[in-house]
Write a protein that binds this DNA or RNA. Structure first.
Lengths: 117, 117
DNA sequence: GTATTATATGAACAAATATTCATATAATAG
DNA sequence: CTATTATATGAATATTTGTTCATATAATAC
């Protein structure tokens, strides 16, 4: 942010002060935006969709999503870091599943919105 | 998608076939991802947060979000194209507001998720 | 030990995107 | 008409991000 911001005209002082008080913190806004950013990619959305009903290994996910093992592995790491999915290892195979109901809920509210437009 | 995908190993054939049937269409996945992409930016999230309680003009939003008129105007266009906000003009001033309850609901479910981690 | 298989990951590249700057448009006031 | 103000927008730039390719790791079988 630069100094030029000072030049800004505030047209509705009262409303603005009221709204400013209701704003959530920059940190929370940032975290929420980062969360939605993760949902904002087709490959990751497909992964979440696939994991909605079953836990799956990397190969299975790659096949279902019509993507490569490497691409999926990269995306699984992102989803895991965001704690949206969990994993468990069985021999060479790693099984992934959704971390909690929230993930499915966010996915579904997104679908609902699109279908209602 | 390339040919190399044919090399993929499918480890759990039965599960995979079941999941494949439950997948939503690529078009819907894409649209939902595009929707979340819009929520996946701090500036736009701030705008949505600001508009949750009042309709606001561009200058007000710029001031509240601590951003510039130009940056906000660009982001408002994106939000409008996605039909997440509406606008009405009164003289020189354009007032923006959230398009429907869904937008607020998505915002809030995101906040909930973050706060519960 | 070696070979094979499932997964992970680093680097490179391409594509997408947010902001800035300059400027255009539109509405009003004088 | 001109000046001013609120908003919009095109182009340029910088940053972020997703995929690919090559390769590394880890587990198992032989």
């Amino acid at each position: 942010m630069k100094d030029e911001l000072c030049e800004m005209t505030v047209i509705h002082k009262e409303t603005v002060e009221k709204v400013k008080k209701q704003m959530i913190s920059d940190d929370l806004v940032f975290d929420v935006a980062e969360l939605f950013k993760i949902f904002g990619d087709s490959t990751r959305m497909k992964i979440i969709c696939a994991l909605k009903n079953s836990e799956l290994c990397v190969c299975d996910i790659a096949y279902i999503t019509n993507s490569t093992q490497s691409a999926i592995s990269h995306q699984l790491r992102i989803l895991k870091q965001a704690k949206l999915i969990r994993s468990r290892k069985e021999g060479k195979v790693v099984y992934y599943s959704l971390a909690d109901d929230h993930v499915e809920k966010i996915f579904e509210i997104g679908c609902e919105h699109i279908e209602e437009i």
